[in-house]
Design a protein around this nucleic acid. Structure first.
Lengths: 254, 254
DNA sequence: TTCGATTTGTTCGTATGTATT
DNA sequence: TAATACATACGAACAAATCGA
């Protein structure tokens, strides 16, 4: 038998199916928590064999856009569920987006305290290009202090394009259950699956020094992060300053 | 038909094959540059279908332990070949193990200058556990200065268990072609496929301040890296200090 | 508790496409 | 051109987990 692919220069069928599924995910067609159509159904819909659908889904699972559960179905992963694992869980999914940890080997998830929230701030000129938005576009700004084991360790400044988070106010932001990424997902259908981070060592800015209890000008780790949802959509810029006297940023490249 | 798996608690066949191949790779049975046996041959050897071998190889490809080339075969990846790509190559493999880059978006591979080399130094007590070796075991020590665009940006201290690198001397180390990881692979059969890094912001130690042209006590990025070969074997401890005034550490989590 | 339906996971086998030598 | 090797796609059978009747 000859397949579509006999016609030259076409991408393989499984990739077209993958892209089609990814577009559906980016459009929020499959909310987290409810299963996608079964592989057999998807195969029927796409007019292909189950194995071809599996190949496409495999890719999305590898990209962390989907998770499979035998006997149940295939789901958009629930970010908070990934995050809420026991700190000594064997896999590292719990720390996927949280890389600061004690140097002494102990593990604890951070507790977050909201220090500031403003619902409409013009986007700083240097941030706009990182998020692919217009300069001075309306932004939501929030400042969080993260404590690990009671100690103030990280000061986060978050910048969110207001257009992506309609109706988000201080109460909704502070009263969330779980992480901010869980909030993005559950209330706005934005599933963060990738982050790009740029790290530098700098002298602590005054706000960070004060919040972290550091002497003025002490070296701190500055982390500039862009969070991307399915389909490469930037949804958040975050500038963090971390006190790395007792903590460190961990990164494994595999 | 019933498969092996009917007997309970056995891992799937593809995982046993994957582990078997990984063990062979760790033992250096397949040197970089020459193809592994074809998938058909491997299937015959393991007494299974080609699809099952492909599944096992898929995993090793995902773990960067192997690369496939259509029409040619499956290979242990040549680290230097990955690294020597054009700086504007579309994929990021060239920078897989090299994360420091200019902040302004330009891209250039670093030039390395050997500042010090000692062939037999007892292992510092705090390093030994990270490499899984005995304290005071004989080590090779090297200090490299990395320049990017002519500017001194990173000072590297390398610690290698001497037992893994028999006969490596200053001339062999300095006279290598390509990266140090390429040297480990070509001369000693150690293919680095993973690194664990811990980052902190610290005041520049005197040696780093001098080499990087920094004022005493300026903030620098301290990177402590353990390089792991196939089979989780630690082969190198590296402590780097980077000047992040004009450069940054980039990390993408996908 | 047992059973059956549903869904993903594993394994086999086959045919054909495409790149390399 | 022919042989070889990986890539894509199909289809089928059975295993294992889940859930509700």
């Amino acid at each position: 038998m000859t397949y579509m692919n006999a016609v030259n220069a076409e991408p393989p069928l499984w990739r077209m199916i993958r892209d089609s599924l990814e577009a559906a995910l980016a459009a929020g067609e499959y909310p987290a928590g409810r299963p996608l159509p079964s592989e057999a159904r998807l195969a029927a819909r796409f007019g292909c064999a189950i194995g071809t659908v599996r190949r496409a889904v495999d890719e999305l699972v590898a990209a962390r856009a989907l998770v499979r559960r035998q006997g149940k179905g295939t789901f958009v992963p629930d970010i908070d569920e990934m995050t809420r694992r026991a700190p000594d869980a064997p896999d590292r999914t719990a720390y996927y987006f949280f890389h600061i940890r004690p140097r002494d080997g102990t593990r604890a998830l951070p507790a977050t305290e909201l220090l500031a929230f403003r619902a409409s701030v013009p986007c700083p000129a240097w941030i706009a290009p990182h998020l692919g938005i217009a300069p001075r576009a309306p932004m939501i700004f929030a400042r969080n202090l993260q404590r690990i084991g009671g100690r103030a360790v990280v000061l986060d400044d978050l910048w969110l394009p207001a257009a992506l988070f309609p109706g988000l106010d201080r109460a909704g932001f502070a009263g969330r259950e779980g992480t901010v990424y869980g909030l993005y997902q559950k209330r706005f259908g934005l599933s963060v699956i990738r982050t790009d981070e740029r790290l530098r060592a700098v002298s602590a800015p005054p706000a960070a020094a004060a919040a972290l209890g550091l002497p003025a000008g002490a070296p701190v780790l500055r982390i500039q992060r862009v969070a991307l949802a399915i389909g490469e959509r930037p949804v958040e810029m975050r500038i963090s300053h971390a006190d790395t006297r007792e903590h460190e940023y961990f990164n494994t490249l595999a």
